Amino acid sequence: MPGMWWVVGTALVVGLVAAYLIWTAGRVDRLQTRAESAARALDAHLLRRAAAAAVLAEQRYGVELYAAARIALDAAPDEREAAENDLTRQLRAVELDPADASCEAVIAASRRLALARQVHTDLVRDARTARGRPLVRLFRMGRGQQWPRYFDIDDPTLTVPADVTTG
């Protein structure tokens, strides 16, 4: 009978290790999926801001801002970060009046973009951390998926002059 306990104990340990590995694989997959969803949401917010900036440029601010917005809208994936940073610089160079609906649309889109960027960065960090763990690498969990990438842009939040907001 003592040999029977050895078999039961071994089966229990193997079952617990298998359950942990299944849980870990599910966690890695969920984090990867959430990071991909955050990337799509970030992309949508980038497009909204660029479109709002293009409308604003057509109405008030002219060629340079319009060109930056169009470049951001049409940029290839490998050129996207530079195009978005240029658009942010162009938006910071103009004086935005929050009383103007077009300016307010750009300001609001920039705020939402900043939040989407932060969520994306946090989820990418979590997914990369989970995939970088030794056990995950040993069992090659998540091997069918690309590593999530950070989207490295300047903080897109726009400041509004103090005298305009208190006026």
Results as ranks from 00 to 15, higher is better:
1 M>Y: 14
8 V>D: 04
11 A>L: 11
11 A>E: 02
12 L>E: 09
13 V>P: 15
14 V>F: 15
15 G>D: 00
16 L>K: 01
17 V>L: 02
18 A>L: 09
22 I>M: 07
22 I>T: 04
23 W>T: 11
23 W>K: 09
24 T>P: 01
25 A>L: 04
30 R>S: 10
31 L>E: 13
32 Q>V: 00
34 R>G: 03
35 A>K: 06
36 E>V: 13
36 E>F: 07
37 S>N: 15
37 S>I: 11
39 A>C: 04
40 R>T: 14
45 H>S: 10
49 R>D: 08
51 A>D: 11
54 A>R: 09
54 A>W: 05
57 A>C: 02
61 Y>P: 01
63 V>S: 15
63 V>P: 06
63 V>M: 15
64 E>P: 00
65 L>S: 08
67 A>H: 12
69 A>I: 03
71 I>A: 13
71 I>P: 01
72 A>W: 00
72 A>P: 00
73 L>K: 10
73 L>N: 09
73 L>M: 13
75 A>P: 03
75 A>I: 11
76 A>I: 03
77 P>W: 11
80 R>P: 04
82 A>E: 06
83 A>Y: 12
83 A>M: 15
89 R>T: 01
90 Q>F: 00
91 L>W: 01
92 R>T: 08
92 R>F: 07
92 R>A: 11
94 V>F: 06
96 L>M: 12
96 L>E: 05
98 P>C: 05
100 D>R: 01
101 A>V: 06
101 A>P: 04
101 A>H: 11
105 A>Q: 09
107 I>H: 04
108 A>H: 12
108 A>V: 13
110 S>I: 02
112 R>L: 03
114 A>K: 05
114 A>W: 01
114 A>H: 08
115 L>D: 02
116 A>G: 00
122 D>M: 10
122 D>F: 08
122 D>V: 09
124 V>D: 06
126 D>L: 08
127 A>P: 10
128 R>C: 14
128 R>F: 07
129 T>S: 05
129 T>W: 07
133 R>G: 14
139 F>A: 05
139 F>K: 01
141 M>K: 07
142 G>T: 02
144 G>V: 06
146 Q>N: 11
146 Q>L: 11
148 P>Q: 11
148 P>R: 09
148 P>D: 10
149 R>L: 12
149 R>V: 05
154 D>W: 00
159 T>K: 10
159 T>G: 13
161 P>E: 13
163 D>F: 03
165 T>S: 14
166 T>H: 08
166 T>C: 02
167 G>D: 15
